[in-house]
Amino acid sequence: MNLQISLLALVQLVLYALLAPLVAGWIHWVKAKLQNRCGARIFQPYRDLYKLFNKEARMAHTASQLFRASPYIVFTATLLAASAVPLLSINLPTAAIADIIAIAGLLALSRFFLALAGMDVGTAFGGMGASREMLVSALAEPAMLVAVFTLAMTAHTTNLASLVGFQLTETFVLRPSFMFALAALVLVAIAETGRIPVDNPSTHLELTMIHEAMILEYSGRHLALMEWAAQLKLLLYGTLLTNVFFPWGIAQDLSLTSLAIGLLSLIAKLLLLGIILAISETVLAKMRLFRTPAFLNLALLLGLLGMLSHVILEIGV
């Protein structure tokens, strides 16, 4: 039994790593269709990663050893954070390692090294990306935690598996606080994963880049790891949003059928989420950098509204 659980935890970890490029590919594909292009196939990100892993990695003369270690740290910390977010089942031991605050901490660790790596070579773009990334994350973090607090105060836990379990056992009621928290978390997720309108993942226009500016100097396997980590982060936030707010279908025991249902429902939810994201990215344009604070303040405000409505309307229910 114990072995089975550990095995499942490992499977979930591998699944995270394997699914991440697929989600990115799916969003690309939908976007291409929406823009009347034929677009690359859904599996293109796998080929890109494969290609990059086989290419030679080069480093600038001015880069230090930190530049070399960063991709591994960034990838590992992101994967570790992902392992604590329930993907298929809520009964996994990995969920106890880190609660939502520790997950935010691990993501912050990966961001810390990403930004440092950006500054390591000593180019103007690297510093620019790092500076902007730290601004966006500094504003996103309080919004995220306020939204999470709203959930945690209702469910009396910051452990994600317990949170999802709470959602499943409670009879479904449309809590206003959860609606606000969902809205806040969606905005935070957009900012944190570097999507339109905060950052454009497919841009290489020099002055608008945030994430791309930091990984500009990377090549080969280092670049592959950085890209993969970004895809993982997207999947992590996607799973967080879908499984916490719409947990239906997630496996509560370890039988094969429920796991299969869990997988199928997960895929359905992620496909839907990808379509929504692609549509929003097609109709929206990227904002100026100094509009971003207003965007994230909106997220914080929504989070606070959620919390207040929890305190005013829902206490004692």
């Binding site: 001015t62 230090s64 930190l66 912050a108 961001r111 810390f112 930004a115 440092l116 950006g118 500054m119 390591d120 070579v121 000593g122 510093g127 790092a130 500076s131 730290m134 601004l135 994350s137 500094a138 504003l139 996103a140 973090e141 309080p142 995220m144 935690l145 306020v146 607090f149 105060m153 914080l300 989070g303 606070l304 919390m307």
Partner: peptide, 28 residues
Amino acid sequence: PIAAAMLALTGALAAACFVKVYGIAFLG
């Protein structure tokens, strides 16, 4: 929770501050 949100903002800004310190002094 508002105090906690300020703590979260503080933590994130501290990270920005020390990325700046380390990036400017020790890297590049």
